[in-house]
């Protein structure tokens, strides 16, 4: 299969700000590609470039084989965009919103009605279809917004942080909706700052930071790129967290991390099982009682930390805008 998106050296400068700084990316057809990165990494700028909302300063971009610089109007026939903020009209019903976008995709009135009904059904909004969107919950609006981007059955869906700001349940519902699209053969490029989301939905993950790709691969590949296994200890008493960290410092390759929320201390470690027994012995020597100790593959979070030297910032984007980021 030919790539659905192929970007080479894609660059976008806003004065001094390099939103994209020579980004190379190939997204294969027939799968979900997730663009993962912190705020300001250039994710939205990239989506906007693919959606032909902005003109890159330099580099080349092909979408479904079409040159986005010379034939943007052809690219628009292939894509469906759902931006960061729901762009459905609150003063119209869900059905009216979908029919409107379907008409704009070029469907006639009857097909638009049918397409809207189908999408409502599929996203679990059939019953709310005739209510004004104003009365919808945040999760329902997002689902409708997703629906609006796919009502014309575009080949490539562009989803910019589709679940930012949603509660966990709405997020799961939206994930299901996205998965069902993919099983239909729609290609999806989504951006997210949630590792779990990328892990759950995407077959390919592209990690971006400062407008560049810093790693790409399947979730498993990325995790093994992270290299070393991680040893993780959960002391029984939270007073022992610091002492546990000291123990890990003696054997670990890097300074250990203390997670106060989960009461766990973790550190990448070379030598795997052998070192595990050392750790257990050292903990025992210092009379630190543990609830749990184990060895595991690194998480994407740790991969990201290893690659960029900073953790992913999982706070929602304060000012989503196609111009910024």
């Amino acid at each position: 299969m030919s790539p659905i998106i192929e970007a080479k050296g894609l660059t976008k400068h806003y004065g001094e700000v390099h939103a994209l700084d020579g980004l190379d990316l190939t997204a294969e057809s027939g799968r979900v590609t997730a663009l993962l990165g912190p705020n300001g990494a250039g994710k939205t700028t990239f989506i906007s470039a693919v959606a032909t909302l902005l003109k890159p300063t330099a580099g080349s971009l092909h979408v479904a084989g079409i040159d986005a610089a010379t034939h943007p109007e052809q690219v628009r026939r292939v894509i469906g965009l759902a931006g960061q903020s729901a762009s459905v009209e609150p003063a119209m019903t869900g059905r009216e919103n979908l029919q409107m976008v379907a008409r704009l995709f070029g469907l006639d009135k009857r097909s638009s009605r049918r397409a809207a009904d189908e999408v409502l059904e599929r996203l679990g909004l059939a019953e709310a279809g005739d209510r004004l969107v104003r009365t919808y919950s945040g999760g329902m609006r997002r689902r409708l917004d997703l629906g609006a981007s796919l009502v014309g059955r575009p080949r490539l869906l562009l989803l910019d942080e589709p679940t930012t700001g949603l509660d966990p349940r709405s997020r799961l519902e939206l994930w299901d909706a996205i998965r069902s699209l993919v099983s239909d053969g729609t290609d999806v490029l989504l951006t997210t700052q949630y590792l779990e989301e990328a892990d759950q939905l995407a077959r390919d993950i592209v990690i971006v930071d400062h407008g560049k790709v810093i790693a790409a691969g399947t979730p498993d590949e990325l995790k093994s790129h992270g290299g070393q296994d991680v040893i993780e200890v959960r002391p029984r008493a939270s007073a022992d967290l610091d002492a546990t960290a000291e123990v890990l410092t003696q054997v670990a390759a890097e300074p250990p991390r203390i997670d106060l929320d989960t009461q766990r201390v973790s550190a990448p470690i070379e030598g795997g099982a052998e070192q595990l027994s050392t750790v257990v012995r050292l903990l025992d020597d210092r009379h630190i009682a543990v609830d749990d100790v184990g060895l595991r593959r690194p998480t994407l979070d740790e991969v990201f930390l290893a690659l960029t030297g900073q953790p992913i910032d999982a706070t929602p984007d304060p000012a989503p805008s196609a111009d910024a980021a």
Partner: peptide, 16 residues
Amino acid sequence: AAPERSAPIDHSVPGA
């Protein structure tokens, strides 16, 4: 440009 890039566009919408 590799030749496989010119794969036919299997579905595209007409637009209003």
